[in-house]
Design a protein around this nucleic acid. Structure first.
Lengths: 150, 150
DNA sequence: TTTTCATGTAATAATAATAGTTACGAATAG
DNA sequence: CTATTCGTAACTATTATTATTACATGAAAA
């Protein structure tokens, strides 16, 4: 399974896209995310398959957010990324022979499964709209600070 | 920070040690864990520093569990391993510049921190004694199955 | 229609984290 | 003194991820 470091990158990208009224190119997004256009395309291609974004080729093309901010939760994005492994543990469920190992795996699996369920539920509670609001709040605060400093 | 794949390996090792009345050599443990004696020594060295195990060099030496099974929780072992990162996310808390990123990181950090707290609490509830009991149960079951088959 | 811009994608290289190996030193029992 | 076993440094191998290169495809503009 794939890694998860992209969840935050994708959120970052989608929010930037939401702030603009025309498509963003892979190049622009790559600059934004401090990465490479091809990596952006690879990642966004997955999101396109689940209808989160659309892409247009050629002059004036790029990537566009396809759904309303309120309708996209962090969980949706996690799912669109293929529900990558959240934990740093190679699936413990190997070498079925040793009974000691079976007992260990069972206990660990239980704990990790519960934590994962909680985390995923939590991701479902936060939408892109939530994040956009938080961003706006930070932005207003930032401007207030600048003003205060002169 | 280090990886977490060792938590299950260490539990496995400690339970095997608990079943024996003399030290286990790194070589024996390595066989048990399908790995290498040097890797075993490296890992166990960390546990020795927190008093979970002792080592004796030379003839008849090896590794011994230093505490009662009831007194060692999975959380203790997690701590002895240096509280390695549990999640597959490079700490999101970089590039403080972009306010969009700040909003994203804040939301993700919140969710992950809570899930981690829950998981760690859960690890604290399971001791080596719990696991040893579960192993014994499985062992009895296994013997019953064998008997039934002839 | 030709040029330019942009995505689509395969193939390859670079990077980084982890695990495994080799080699040898130090301690201890017999 | 010898065999055994941990302690550790240095090096190699493996694996996963990310980055890069190269080129094909499609679409708008000149």
């Amino acid at each position: 399974m794939k890694r998860n470091s992209r969840l935050s990158a994708v959120l970052h990208a989608l929010l930037h896209m939401a702030e603009r009224d025309r498509p963003m190119t892979s190049e622009e997004l790559a600059t934004c995310l401090h990465t490479n256009p091809v990596v952006v395309r690879r990642t966004m291609a997955g999101l396109r398959e689940t209808g989160l974004v659309t892409s247009v080729r050629g002059h004036g093309g790029g990537w566009t957010l396809a759904r309303a901010l309120e309708d996209v939760s962090m969980r949706d994005i996690y799912a669109a990324l293929g529900e990558p492994m959240l934990f740093q543990m190679g699936n413990v469920s190997e070498s079925p022979g040793c009974l000691v190992e079976q007992a260990v795996n069972h206990a660990l699996d239980d704990a990790f499964r519960d934590a994962e369920a909680m985390l995923i539920a939590r991701l479902g509670e936060v939408t892109l709209a939530t994040l956009a609001d938080d961003f706006k709040r930070r932005f207003a605060e930032h401007r207030a600070t600048l003003k205060q400093l002169g």
